[in-house]
């Protein structure tokens, strides 16, 4: 099977006057055609940095330190997004890979009608004005908005409608990959549910692969097919959504899932994950979770665990699983 987006060994740093601090380290991730993959982790774990890397939006103060992001084009050829020229990238973005940034309800120009803001991008990509209107209307339809939105100004729309409009803008070129960074964070639960269901519908209709970045495990459980868990700049576990929720293997993933507030759960059923996640300025050596991990071994303090396939389609970066294997063997 072709892989729509292959993130390979991607490391991105933050440039200051004296040195470069690594934010995400050697990230490997495959995005399959038409899947919804969720990237979860706490704030500061590098989720959004991974998103801008996948989009080839690495700009000062961010610097590319290693790796590649290979996007498969409709003709079967691949192109490395992080090493493309700015012109090539401009053509790739929106047409093949689109982005719904965090807080995207505030991305609209307040003094322009929605029509111009949605069609401009398409016209820039060489589409005629008339076809652009048709495509935009179709995209609005997919997010349950009427074409009359086109004649309105952003302030006339509610938060949920603006978020939908941003999604419509992103899918109007029918890209192969859509990256949505916290698409529903500032919205109430009812609107959130409608927008998430619309995203699933968009995937079903257009076959677009969607990368959803969120810290909300509930959102992930509802819409994702696969989940990648990030901790301190690394992906520590990737697997099918049911595997991650029912049988997480990495101690951090286990703690993260144990700490979430669940409807129907009483106070005592929530385990509290003690300590704070480290910042890029003091990432621990070895496994970055070792200072908070209840199962830390000597190896964990010195040796970085690789992300290894431990079960069918379930990769984990943890030395503990080596021990278990050798104990049994």
């Amino acid at each position: 099977m072709t892989i729509t987006l292959q993130i390979r060994d991607l490391s991105i740093g933050l440039q200051s006057t004296k040195k470069i601090t690594q934010i995400i380290s050697h990230v490997n991730l495959d995005v399959l055609p038409g899947e919804i993959i969720g990237i979860v982790g706490e704030s500061g774990c590098g989720k959004s940095t991974l998103a801008i890397g996948a989009l080839g939006l690495i700009e000062t103060p961010h610097v590319l330190q290693s790796g590649s992001v290979l996007l498969t084009l409709p003709d079967g050829s691949t192109t490395d997004v992080v090493r493309s020229s700015p012109e090539a990238l401009r053509d790739l973005r929106w047409r093949h890979i689109a982005y719904i940034p965090q807080g995207s309800m505030n991305i609209f120009n307040p003094v322009m009608r929605i029509r111009a803001q949605l069609t401009d991008t398409l016209v820039q990509h060489g589409i005629t004005e008339r076809e652009a209107i048709e495509r935009v209307t179709h995209a609005l339809h997919l997010v349950n908005l009427k074409p009359s939105v086109l004649d309105q100004y952003p302030h006339e729309l509610s938060g949920g409608m603006k978020q939908r409009t941003a999604i419509a803008a992103a899918i109007s070129m029918e890209p192969a990959v859509l990256i949505a960074d916290e698409p529903t964070t500032a919205l109430d639960v009812v609107t959130q549910r409608m927008i998430l269901q619309e995203l699933v519908k968009i995937r079903d209709t257009l076959g677009v692969a969607i990368i959803i970045i969120s810290h909300d495990m509930g959102v992930m459980a509802q819409v994702a097919d696969r989940i990648a868990v990030m901790y301190a700049g690394r992906i520590i576990e990737v697997g099918a959504v049911t595997d991650i929720f029912k049988a997480p293997l990495h101690p951090y993933a286990q703690a993260l899932l144990g700490s979430i507030l669940q409807s129907g759960h009483e106070t005592d059923q929530v385990e509290i994950l003690e300590g704070e996640s480290p910042s890029p300025w003091n990432y621990p050596t070895g496994c970055r979770f070792n200072p908070r991990c209840p199962h830390t071994m000597d190896r964990c303090r010195t040796e970085v665990p690789d992300l290894i396939l431990r079960r069918a389609s379930h990769q984990v970066a943890c030395h503990l699983l080596d021990e278990k294997v050798s104990n049994h063997g």
Binding site: V190, Q192, Q197, K201, G218, A221, Q222, Q262
Partner: peptide, 17 residues
């Protein structure tokens, strides 16, 4: 509409537009 953090309890119906 609360997203339940359990993939086996997904929303079964679409909300009306």
């Amino acid at each position: 509409s609360i997203p339940v953090a359990d993939p086996s309890q997904r929303w079964d119906s679409m909300l009306p537009a």
